[in-house]
Design a protein around this nucleic acid. Structure first.
Length: 599
RNA sequence: GGGGGCGUAGCGAAGAUGGUUAUCGCGUCGGCCUGUCACGCCGAAGAUCGCGGGUUCGAUCCCCGUCGCUCUCGCCA
């Protein structure tokens, strides 16, 4: 079986300049645009590297002219021709190769193309589902090409960094034991053992800890992870993490390593200088000031505790919340020429707050000469100047306050208002603002099941000062946990791990995990800890999410070659799909369809 | 599981208090064109207005249901 011969490229569509004039070249690529003037015919030929204008002149042979007239968008062709400098008046300054054109001597159609479902532009206007169905076409767009390249450069720079800093790249299995806590596992049925399942890893967490016990004190991996939870704009069923772990380290060793890594990677990939050290905020500080644990520091609007001023008001709701021990916080929204603080806009802000559990949004407009109007201003009569100076407000600003019995809901609902305001008022400055969130609580109370559980996961180390009082007051315990945040997205999460069996057992107990259950689920880790486990810790930055932010996109799908949609399916290959009965029976499975009709 | 948005030629959009021929741009097909570069000009084809039901003399439009996509809350250690 010999393949059909064709003229193989001698150069690419992004490389020719006037220095190449006079050379005979062969280009291979796709017909990007096709401008046929009858006797004169221009073809923009595109490949990964760029676009070059091919010309079929009026002196072309009849055969060549006929071939050229058959060309349609996205035909894959080979062009043999002569590079010639364009006359000065015909130079296209917007094209890298705009100084030259290739006078076609021969055109071969390597592969035809059906009429396109959508045009291939820098960014197509077609809706996302269609783009995913025809991903092979969408990937040809310069936007996708650019983003996939960025991702490649990013991962490459990461690997280079770890190779030169003496880390080992070690693969861990993707068929592992199902872990009960955390996200829902993707399960893979065992053919040999009826009723038994492997799980796809949510992360290589336990395996990398065991690698530490195994003596590989600096490990990293570009690891695929799987979580069977609902997708989001910044969340996919499967995603890629830079997973790393180190032995004999303390928290700051990990933070400093990450700062150094991203300094070097951002410099190499985007020629951007990051600060040598990233800002550090405690969880509590971040919640209180920005209303979440992933603050967007690209704009400087800050939340302020408002109990002090609210308790002076005559607003009954505030009094009730205060006497119930709740929280009241406020935000001074600066006057803006982008948004008029109309009743309609305030309603929008209130809706944003309500999605995070706020009951309402108290608001006050700041007028001239220290006056207040609208909303709850009538409850602050006589306190005008005090309110204004408390929030540092000036004329035209809008002060909003949220009162809630739950400190967390008070923070997060006001945080939602802050985020919306940042976008709507166009306050967000360009750039990349990293920060660390540290000192997370180790446990949080599960109201429904009436017991404590790990806020992150059960393998994180409590901070030393809490070690003796863990059981007495779990809610107060802070862990050696850290998240890396970039422009309002959590991009990495890590911790110093527990390496002591007894401490680990204590944590299980606090989380209402019986010894038997712990033994059954994590016995192998506990066993490993009995054999000289080193102190260790690590972190796992999300590759997709970081590249998304670097590419200034808001959907993770833009930086993944073949993503799933929000409905957790792939429109291109139509997965997931039904399998035949034989496959099911091999796996000892029987499908019970839900009541609702299915297909 | 809940909430919001969207669904009109291959693609992107417009549309009407409910009225008989549903617009526009891109693409497609045919013709013309010697300097275009989002080429231009002339012509043509292409739509059960997501699907089902209801109200009505009449529904793409109103109502109910349903499906799909999307954003989001829950969820995601």
């Amino acid at each position: 079986m010999s393949e059909e011969a064709f003229a193989q490229r001698t150069t690419t569509c992004g490389s020719l300049t006037k220095a190449d004039a006079g050379k005979t070249v062969v280009l291979n690529g796709w017909v990007h645009r096709d401008r046929n003037h009858g006797a004169l015919h221009f073809i923009n030929l595109r490949d990964r590297y760029g676009i070059t204008q091919v010309v079929v002149d009026d002196d072309a042979s009849k055969e060549l002219q006929e071939t050229a007239s058959k060309l349609r968008m996205e035909f894959c062709i080979a062009v043999t021709g002569l590079v010639r400098q364009r006359p000065d008046t015909m130079i296209n300054k917007d094209m890298v190769t705009g100084e030259i054109e290739v006078k076609a001597e021969k055109i071969e159609i390597l592969s035809k193309c059906l009429p396109l479902p959508f045009m291939i532009d820098e960014e197509t206007e077609a809706n996302e589902d269609l783009r995913l169905k025809y991903r092979f076409l969408d990937l040809r767009s310069s936007g996708m090409q650019k983003r996939i390249k960025l991702r490649h450069e990013f991962v490459k720079a990461i690997r280079e960094y770890f190779y030169k800093t003496d880390f080992y790249e070690i693969e861990t299995p993707t068929l592992i034991k199902s872990t009960p806590e955390g996200a829902r596992d993707f399960l893979v049925p065992s053919r040999f053992y009826p009723g038994k399942f492997f799980a796809l890893p949510q992360s290589p967490q336990l395996l990398k800890q065991i690698l530490m016990v195994g003596g590989f004190d600096k490990y990293f991996q570009i690891a695929r992870c799987y979580r069977d939870e609902d997708a989001r704009g910044d969340r996919q069923l499967e995603f890629t993490q830079l997973d790393l772990e180190m032995s004999f380290v303390k928290r700051d060793d990990v933070l400093v390593l990450m700062e150094d890594l991203f300094n070097q990677v951002f410099k190499k990939v985007m020629n951007i200088d990051l600060p040598k050290e990233f800002i550090r905020l405690s969880y509590e500080e971040s919640m209180n000031t920005y209303g979440n644990d992933k603050p967007d520091l690209r704009f400087d609007v800050k939340i302020k505790d408002a109990i002090e001023i609210a308790e002076k008001s005559s607003f009954a709701t505030f009094k009730d919340i205060i006497s119930a021990g709740g929280s009241i916080k406020g935000l001074c929204i600066p006057k803006s020429d982008k948004v008029n603080f109309s009743r309609k806009y305030i309603d929008e802000l209130q809706e944003a707050a309500k999605t995070y559990g706020a009951k309402g949004l108290a608001w006050i407009k700041v007028g001239e000469n220290n006056t207040l109007s609208g909303g709850v201003s009538k409850f602050f009569v006589g306190l005008e100047s005090e309110v204004i100076s408390y929030f540092g407000a000036t004329e035209g600003d809008l002060i909003v306050m949220i009162a809630h019995n739950s400190w967390k809901k008070c923070c997060t609902s006001l945080g939602a208002v802050r985020s919306k305001v940042g976008k709507d008022l166009d306050l967000i400055q360009p750039g990349f603002k990293f920060c660390w969130i540290i000192d997370f609580p180790l446990f949080e109370f599960n109201e429904d099941e009436n017991h404590w559980e790990a806020a992150h996961h059960m393998f994180s180390m409590p901070q030393a000062e809490y070690l003796d009082t863990l059981e007495e007051n779990p809610g107060a315990v802070k862990g050696d946990l850290y998240d890396l945040v970039l422009n309002g997205y959590e991009v990495a999460s890590g911790s110093i791990r527990i390496h002591d069996v007894e401490l680990q057992k204590k944590i299980f107990k606090i989380c209402n995990f019986s010894e038997e259950e712990a033994e059954q689920k994590f016995g192998y880790l506990l066993e490993a800890f009995k054999y000289g486990a080193p102190p260790h810790g690590g972190i796992a930055p999300g590759i997709d999410r970081m590249v998304m932010i670097m590419a200034e996109e808001t959907s993770i799908k833009e930086v993944i070659a073949f993503p799933k949609n929000t409905a957790a399916t792939s429109p291109m290959d139509d997965s997931p799909s039904y399998v035949d009965d034989q496959q099911l029976s091999d796996l000892h499975l029987k499908v019970v369809y839900p009541e609702k009709k299915d297909k």
